[in-house]
Write a protein that binds this DNA or RNA. Structure first.
Length: 965
RNA sequence: GCGCAAGUGGCGGAAUUGGCAGACGCGCCAGCCUUAGGAGCUGGUGCCUUCGGGUGUGCGGGUUCAAGUCCCGCCUUGCGCACCA
């Protein structure tokens, strides 16, 4: 290139960037001091505000990074770097979520050990991340697969295992319900303060019996329950990992319900707190809504309907007890255990509606046939059938407790066993599903809420209105609104012993075991009675053994009858051990748990380990946790009045795909740790921000196959002006999609480093638009960011000589004002993640300096400081060349001078009838009257108001609107 | 179906409280420089125009001196939930 010798080119950028990355590493620039623990540097902590910045734990993928990945990392880095310049003690680092399915699958494909492939991937990713110039404290980089890390994952598991939820216990924050050590429960059983479920004395129970009792309380417990089994994947999955159409989120394999003994986490005990505490954190409303939705809390009542002619009653859950007078039939889920008990023997009653019988001769046969049909339906079929209600009469009747009416009991698969009680009272007048069912089966419909005016007669009314047709001898709801009617009827039901208020949740307990190799082993052994024992702390970690065959046993994806087989079960000499657990029983024979933990385990607490990764004595030193995570004096702005601050990470950025899974699981673990006194914060992530995605153009040929995007040629048709895309001579169609191998549209950051440098990539990504938006990548637009940095360079460095060309002259007034306006704008944008607008302001200032004959040092230096969070390498280099020895990392961010923000004169806009017709330069402090006078004297205004003036609106000094008569 | 977002130039996107629509960047156009330009610099760039101006923030209505912004109705796109009683 015949360029000027000292131009800021990609080559120079690269030199500068690598040099500064080396220096940062040598000097430990980003090492954040801790108040306590092995790395205690209290003297460096004192007197500084702290800031904990976090990215979502990345999985080290074999494909390396593409340009979409670093978006969030750059954003947190800019935020962290900005705050370092305001004097805060900032902790920002990144580790690796390195256990998991892809590594295992890749290892199986390549025949290498997953540890090897995972570690190789981590090396690649570390190099790429370092090249971006992220200001991470590299001492704190951890990986979930390190035994030193998963030792503490296992330790936390044992804490959860050895805990139970006491709904009566009072928390430090005044609420009731918290986890307590299981030993305190055992003491209650031993003392007799709490009766055992079977009524026997604790001392009379065998160890196995005791263990069974405790399993009903432990927060981590085994249970024989229907679980999601994916034969094609060879493992069971949590509800959250199964898609709506009954397939695995990973791999898209069919999932079947199978009864298996599995480890569960009692997350349902925390349902209320997980829902309520969303009010106290600063998260996107959308994500809060998704979590609330998943928890699915609904207030309602349980009501018992006695079965006619039997000593049994059907208990239902309803959110609309106020509509009880309109309950004209009942429906049980096909799996409901009471069905067998209530179905009458023999023939149908003579007057039975033939449409109710399913064409069977007896109720028993009808029920059996329907059950069989229902059990054969897959989730998909149940869903695609949509609103076509199916069902069958059970032959039984139940009594509506409010009016004594005998109503038929049906069985139908639109009622789910997994929610509420698995039985409903059907109120067709006020419920769409019940209405459809009633229509289908010719059942009576009674309105008990007066529909609003104009409501169609042939539709249920689910809105608000006064109750009607809702009275018996003792209670009348008529005329009451929905809320009052609910309260009134619940009170009456409670007095009668027929019902009580209750709360129901969609949230189920968390299935926690997986039949995989590449995960944390459970710190659990079973003795010869089959009783589970936590492996004591001093024996942790339970290391994952090396095995010859780590591939999971998978099956035909459709083979629902198959059973999972954990790979660790094949390692006999690891499974069968003789141990002294230190419980006074001496050395005994045990069998190890052969399941492994799900991928979520390691990511449930990694942010806590960042705080104190070298600590061998504790998962985190309490003082470090309190310092970095502890509650703040003032709650978040959106918190309800009187709420206390939960503490937690100051800023967490990551993709919305983890809105339910990871964020919910981590909150649960954190709350258990809080209850057990291990942490002072009761939420892990005080502020969470979900970033958008970067998408990229992808192109498909005639057959719909993606073609390599980088080989597509764009041309504008000279006749029509249309833009056409061709690949190897054939025309292809453009679309936008996720960056990845499948769409053949990967752009690697490595290419960007080479063509432009890391600073340019950083500035480009941050300038693309608001962080929360998804936006398309456009490689040819990257040059805009490069031009900005080149002009910045040229404002400071002479491209011919390489000498600093700033002058030690005072700022002229216009430059001073431009500078301080920029400082003002940028220091508002950085803390609110408004990086795109901050960059726009910086470009404006830079362009203004370009037009000066000579750039004053003060302006150049302040501009360089403001650019530093975004483009740290060039900023460091310019800062040094401007004569500063210290890294710019802790340079002081400039503060705007308020005096320079107010203008002496302003352009006043003169509108006539709301349209801009003229402008006027006026003093900023002009009075309304003076301004009105000046405006009315303008020739254009005079001309327009010959017919008189109706009104004049004056908003001094910026606007006057004249309305002619 | 229900719920929640969002619709602004050729493109990504800016616009305190309602007060100059289109900051900044890409692209495009012109000029300069250059042997050359997929480099750089300078200027221009919503649309229409008879060069006076007109018109313009998904569509239709409304409130207002004044609406991208507030209200009502619709359309489109994206996301979430989907028999949750």
């Amino acid at each position: 290139m015949s360029e000027t010798p000292h131009r800021y080119t990609a080559e120079l950028a690269q030199q500068i960037e690598l040099a500064w990355q080396d220096r940062w590493q040598e000097e430990g620039t980003f090492h954040a001091p801790n108040p306590a623990g092995p790395w205690a540097e209290p003297e460096k902590v004192a007197g500084r505000e702290k800031l904990l910045v976090l990215d979502m734990f990345p999985y080290p993928s074999g494909a390396g990074l593409h340009v979409g990945h670093p978006l969030g990392y750059i954003a947190t880095d800019v935020f962290a770097r900005y705050h370092r310049m305001t004097g805060k003690n900032v902790l920002h680092c990144l580790g690796y979520d390195a256990f998991g399915l892809p590594a295992e699958q890749y290892a199986v494909q390549t025949g290498q050990h997953p540890r090897k492939t995972t570690e190789d991937n981590m090396v690649v990713m570390k190099r790429q991340l370092r090249r971006l110039g992220l200001g991470h404290d590299d001492r704190r980089t951890i990986a979930t697969i390190d035994p030193g890390y998963y030792k503490w994952t296992q330790w936390i598991f044992t804490q959860i295992y050895d805990a139970w939820y006491d709904p009566e216990a009072v928390r430090p924050d005044g609420g009731t319900g918290r986890a307590r050590p299981i030993t305190e429960l055992v003491e209650q059983f031993e003392s007799g303060d709490r009766p055992t479920p079977g009524g026997q004395r604790w001392s009379e129970l065998s160890p196995a019996e005791r263990s069974e009792v405790l399993d009903d309380f432990r927060l981590a417990y085994t249970s024989q329950a229907p679980v999601n089994w994916a034969p094609g994947l060879g493992t069971v999955l949590s509800n959250e990992e199964v898609t709506n159409d009954g397939r695995s989120e990973r791999g898209n394999f069919p999932v079947f319900k199978t009864n298996l003994r599995q480890w569960m986490m009692r997350i349902t005990s925390y349902a209320d707190r997980l829902a309520d505490d969303l009010d106290r954190v600063d998260w996107p409303d959308k994500v809060k809504a998704m979590q609330r939705n998943w928890i699915g809390r609904s207030q309602g009542a349980r009501v018992a309907f006695p079965v006619v002619g039997r000593d049994a009653s059907i208990e239902v859950f309803t959110t609309r007890p106020d509509t009880l007078f309109g309950a004209t039939f009942m429906v049980l889920a096909p799996e409901h255990p009471l069905v067998d008990e209530i179905v009458p023997q023999g023939e149908w009653a003579a007057d039975t509606n033939p449409a109710w019988t399913g064409g069977e001769a007896t109720p028993e046969a009808a029920v059996a046939a329907y059950r069989l049909a229902a059990s054969r339906k897959s989730e998909v079929e149940r869903q695609t059938e949509g609103k076509d209600k199916t069902g069958v009469f059970t032959g039984a009747f139940a009594t509506n407790p409010v009016n004594g009416q005998q109503i038929p009991v049906f069985m139908a698969d639109y009622v789910l066993m997994g929610y509420g009680t698995g039985a409903i009272m059907a109120v067709p007048g006020q419920d769409h599903r019940d209405w459809e069912f009633a229509e289908q089966f010719g059942l009576p419909i009674i309105r008990t809420v007066q529909p609003s005016e104009g409501h169609p007669d042939d539709e249920p009314f689910t809105g608000e209105g006064p109750a009607v047709n809702s009275a018996n001898d003792e209670v009348s709801l008529d005329g009451l609104g929905v809320a009052e009617a609910k309260a009134a009827i619940i009170e009456w039901l409670a007095a009668k012993g027929s019902g009580q208020p209750t709360v129901s949740y969609k949230l189920r307990d968390w299935l926690f075991s997986r039949q995989r190799y590449w995960g944390e082993p459970f710190p659990i052994v079973f003795d010869e009675d089959g009783v589970s024992h936590a492996v004591p702390d001093w024996m942790l970690p339970v290391e994952l053994p090396d095995v010859p065959d780590y591939s999971p046993k998978t099956f035909e994806p459709e083979d629902a009858s198959s059973q999972p087989e954990p790979p660790l079960g094949r390692v006999e000499d690891w499974v069968n051990v003789e141990l002294d657990l230190g419980d006074g029983r001496g050395v005994r024979k045990y069998r190890r748990e052969t399941n492994t933990m799900p991928n979520w385990a390691g990511s449930c607490w990694y942010y806590l380990r960042y705080l104190d990764p070298a600590n061998d004595e504790a998962f985190v030193d309490p003082a470090n946790e309190a310092y970095w995570m502890g509650p703040r004096a003032t709650p978040v702005a959106t918190a309800p009045a009187g709420a206390t601050d939960p503490g937690g990470v100051d800023l967490y950025i990551g993709g919305v795909e983890h809105a339910v899974l990871h964020l919910l699981y981590a909150r649960f673990w954190h709350k258990v740790l809080y209850d057990l006194g291990h942490v002072t914060s009761d939420e892990p992530f005080r502020k969470y921000f979900s970033q958008g995605y970067i998408q990229a153009a992808a192109y498909r040929d005639d057959r719909g196959q993606p073609v390599e995007s980088s080989e597509v040629v764009e041309a504008t048709d000279p006749d029509s002006g249309e833009v056409r895309y061709t690949w190897n001579g054939q025309s292809v169609a453009r679309e936008y999609g996720k960056i990845g191998k499948s769409l053949k549209n990967v752009v690697s950051p490595d290419e960007m480093f080479e063509q432009y440098g890391a600073d340019t990539l950083r500035v480009y990504e941050m300038s693309m638009g608001p962080l929360e938006l998804s936006k398309p990548w456009e490689t040819r637009a990257v040059v805009g960011a490069q031009r900005f940095l080149q002009r910045l360079w040229r404002n400071v460095i002479d491209e011919e000589t390489g000498e600093v060309r700033v002058v030690d002259a005072p700022l002229d007034d216009a430059t001073a004002r431009a500078l301080h306006r920029t400082i003002d704008a940028v220091s508002k944008d950085f803390p609110t993640l408004g990086f795109n607008t901050a960059i726009a302001r910086l470009i404006e200032l830079n362009n203004a300096l370009t037009k000066l004959d000579a750039v004053p040092r003060e302006a150049a230096e302040k501009l360089v400081v403001m650019v530093a969070p975004l483009a740290p390498h060039i900023a460091e280099e310019l800062w040094q060349r401007l004569g500063h020895d210290e890294s710019i990392t802790f340079g002081t961010f400039p503060v705007a001078d308020p005096a320079l923000l107010v203008e002496d004169t302003v352009t006043c806009v003169v509108q006539i009838k709301g349209k801009v017709r003229d402008r006027l330069e006026v003093p900023a402090d002009i009075t309304e009257d003076a301004l009105r006078e000046q405006v009315l004297a303008l020739p254009k205004v005079v001309a327009a108001t010959e017919a008189g003036i109706r009104t004049v609106i004056v908003r001094a000094p910026k606007l006057v609107n004249v309305v002619p008569a």
